[in-house]
Design a protein around this nucleic acid. Structure first.
Length: 260
DNA sequence: ATGTCAGCTTCGAGCTGA
């Protein structure tokens, strides 16, 4: 089972690049972030024509997540529990029925949190605490669980080309990293780091200041696996080349394969 | 040395968010 995560930065803007990548990468499941579309306006036919079931959790203008799946989906749920007042569309879950095993798959778009300090950073930390509580519940199921998406967290200095630039940013502050570790330390495996060590691996390059040409990137898109999912992990890669194409997103896809 | 992009509002440039 191949599961990919891709912050597309707007479905309208990626209406050509996204299907082109899907046709090449052929993930069974694609978790999309920043669809920037309401559910009614999401161009589902483009993906349904390719054999994908489409489940969206959108909102007007910003945010929005989606699951595309060639495998059957069950028990889709939208929104991160823990705050009925929260109207931002950043979380979607579904059970993917694999050939051998069912996997609970969660797609997430974690708040950016800048500027610091301020209400946006407070919201980020509060959202991460809600994520921790949901992660704890999911672990208790003792089933394979995958939580993937744009975490807006640079886990360590080696995950940025220029860590000094990010030192006081919401993506890298010690408090942000601690909140991320608090979730990991419940017993999750970060799939990319389970298979690849060392610096120089990125999933995002800013549109500004020629960041891509200078390889001035950061690694902020992650896959967290429950122990039962980690046991099934066979690969984890970043589709870096996508960033050099026409009209790219500022993020690239990252994917795993599971023996499921 | 500097350098962007996407979407919204409401027709087009300025704002927000990243």
């Amino acid at each position: 089972m191949k599961i990919a995560s891709f912050n597309i930065n707007g479905i309208k803007a990626r209406i050509e690049a996204l299907p082109a990548w899907l046709d090449e990468a052929e993930p069974d499941v694609a978790l999309l972030q920043e669809i920037k579309s309401v559910d009614e306006n999401f161009p589902r036919e483009i993906f349904e024509d390719r054999g994908y079931t489409v489940e969206t959790h959108g909102q007007k203008g910003f945010n929005g997540v989606a699951i595309l799946s060639k495998l059957p989906l069950e028990d889709v749920s939208r929104g991160l529990p823990g705050d009925p007042e929260d109207e931002q569309a950043r979380w979607i879950e579904a059970t993917v029925i694999g050939d051998k095993t069912a996997v609970r798959v969660c797609g997430l778009y974690l708040p950016n949190g800048n500027p610091v300090p301020g209400p946006k950073y407070d919201y980020k930390l509060a959202w991460m605490e809600r994520l921790r509580l949901r992660a704890q519940e999911l672990l208790a199921s003792e089933e394979p669980v995958v939580m993937a998406g744009d975490y807006n967290i640079i886990p360590q200095d080696e995950d940025a080309a220029r860590p000094e630039v990010w030192a006081r940013d919401a993506l890298a502050l010690p408090e942000s990293r601690a909140a991320f570790r608090r979730i990991l330390n419940l017993g999750f495996t970060e799939a990319f780091r389970a298979r690849t060590q060392g610096p120089g691996h990125f999933t995002f390059w800013d549109y500004q200041a020629g960041a891509w040409n200078k390889n001035d990137g950061i690694r902020i898109d992650h896959f967290l696996l429950s122990p039962q999912a980690a046991d099934l992990l066979t690969d984890c890669q970043i589709d870096k080349d996508i960033r050099a194409r026409e009209k790219p997103s500022d993020h690239v896809p990252i994917w795993i394969t599971l023996d499921a």
